[in-house]
Design a protein around this nucleic acid. Structure first.
Lengths: 138, 138
DNA sequence: TTCGATACGCACCAAAAGGAGAGTGTCGCA
DNA sequence: TGCGACACTCTCCTTTTGGTGCGTATCGAA
């Protein structure tokens, strides 16, 4: 009855058995990946990589289609993870600058391959999707 | 009153003004990126890249910590986008194999840099997070 | 003979993602 | 005098993500 749950539970044991070292490190890497492999993070990374320093609304304009809520959240998380530096100029009306850190620039470079992949193969993805839909319907 | 909304609305116009070509392509690329830049997709990609062909529960075991529901969903989406091939052997008990397509292998290679980044810098991300927390509290 | 494994689909629920709209406080421009 | 820009925050709402548990058909092993 609980066959699946037990099968799923064993996977931890197996993955322990194959690589006996670096268990906590892999968990950390996954955690970092999970937060970094995010649509908005990738887009903001790109925007700041291309334009250097941007203000809050400029980031929004460059990314395009993001709400202020998500923009604030994404930038805060990126600041927390050491990907961007947030500089507040204590003036009114407010002026806040965002720039990539070295860490952020490295990550942006790492994502470069994924952008290239998407630009190269997006037509094939679309084709695969059409074929899948037709197979489902027909 | 509607200053922000109008400012956000202008971003589409600006991004049109800067790159006058390839508007639909960029939209497509983003759409593809948004679906591919996903935690589970990345993990399944990795699992299949390393082990070649895997059965449903084997993928689950290799990825680790994923529920069958999310595994099913992720694998279906990857099949739809042409990243994996799903082979059903009509036997009972059921037997289904998953393998990466060439497209999937290319994407996996593209994500390689991100994995390297995470392995190289996860300690720095942790440090940045600690520093941020202390600054917030202190 | 009964249990466990296989690869799911379905129903129910909680949490997170994400959007829309309002409000804030002051400055500079019309 | 009054509106717009700035960089947010807060609330309300919907959608998506994700988890848990149940059921299924049959085969091989205990």
């Amino acid at each position: 009855m609980h066959a699946i749950r037990e099968a799923m539970a064993t996977m931890h044991k197996r993955s322990e058995a194959i690589p006996p070292v670096s268990k906590a490190v892999e968990s950390l890497v996954r955690q970092v990946i999970a937060q970094v492999a995010d649509k908005w993070t990738m887009l903001v990374l790109e925007a700041l990589e291309e334009h250097g320093t941007l203000r809050f609304t400029e980031v929004g304009r460059t990314v395009g289609g993001i709400s202020q809520k998500m923009l604030t959240k994404t930038l805060r998380e990126m600041e927390r993870d050491g990907l961007v530096i947030r500089t507040v100029h204590p003036v009114i009306p407010p002026h806040v600058d965002y720039t990539l850190t070295e860490l952020g620039r490295e990550l942006s470079a790492a994502f470069c391959g994924v952008w290239t992949w998407a630009e190269t193969y997006h037509a094939e993805v679309s084709a695969a999707r059409r074929a899948f839909r037709e197979r489902e319907e027909g």
